[in-house]
Amino acid sequence: MTPTKPVLRVIDLQVSYYTEAGRALALDRVSLELYPGEKLGMVGESGCGKSTMALAMMRMIKPPGRIEGGQVFIDDVDLMTLPEAKMRKARLSLISYIPQGAMNSLNPVLRIEAQMRDAIKEHLPTMRDAEVQARIYEALESVELRREVARMYPHELSGGMKQRVCIAIGILLGPKVIIADEPTSALDVVTQRQVMETLDRVQKQLGAAMILIGHDMGLMAQFVDKVAVMYAGKFTEISPVRDIFTNPLHPYARALIESLPTLNNKGVFKGIPGLAPSLINRPSGCAFHPRCSEAMEICRTVTPALIEQRDGRRVACHLYDQPIRRADEPAMVASR
């Protein structure tokens, strides 16, 4: 069964931070769609707006940050227009967020079960205690933790176990969209693989859509279906994972892929020249043009739009202003 209707629709979401140095446009009218069961990887350098986007979708942006516009639909509910009380309910039950370094977000003086019970009671105050307990055990088991973990304190658990507790809390109420922000960045490779396998399984069980935020392209290659590359608060390219690794379209995506160490390019170090742009004084036109090897005159003045190509990939770059011709098609004179 292929789902026909997206579970998540983000439309023109915009966030700015107001600092002493001026206004930093952290998220510049970004749009995104996600279908049930789909896994999207969101990548980009630190400060490019990945975490801001996640927090904005949760309506958890704090001053000096401000959501300045846009809509976030989960099915037909626009989270941006919900009253705060309803939004509180929506968090965890419609959309849940597993923050970066989540293991440090557990309360050190409360047992795991107390923290999980809080989350359930907040949403379902009438649920009977026995039922709550059953729900807690079920969630722990689904992330492969023993029931005894419920009675433990965070310090008694290893990093991987704490991270799994956070995943268990994230799925307690069966959300439709799960956002995981670098869920394994502090873990060892073997533990990382176990945690990712767990995340993959619970996501499939729930049939939820998932956004994985990170800058580890290796993890993306192994885990997600689609990759969205963000640069200076905008998406530069959104493509299926195989396409982005074998044939990246946007020059930034290409540089990102080429900078990766693989087994076949030992000793070749190819960083991306230049520095990440300032969000306060962002470059005119395409924000990547000062670092781009293929920058043209138009790139300095006109911001490219995210345009859908014929194969369904989307890219924001003047190189692709005209839809790409496939090799098996006859050449057409492009007229617009």
Partner: peptide, 8 residues
Amino acid sequence: DSIPWPDV
């Protein structure tokens, strides 16, 4: 074997 190689 647990290294996530950036290779699809």
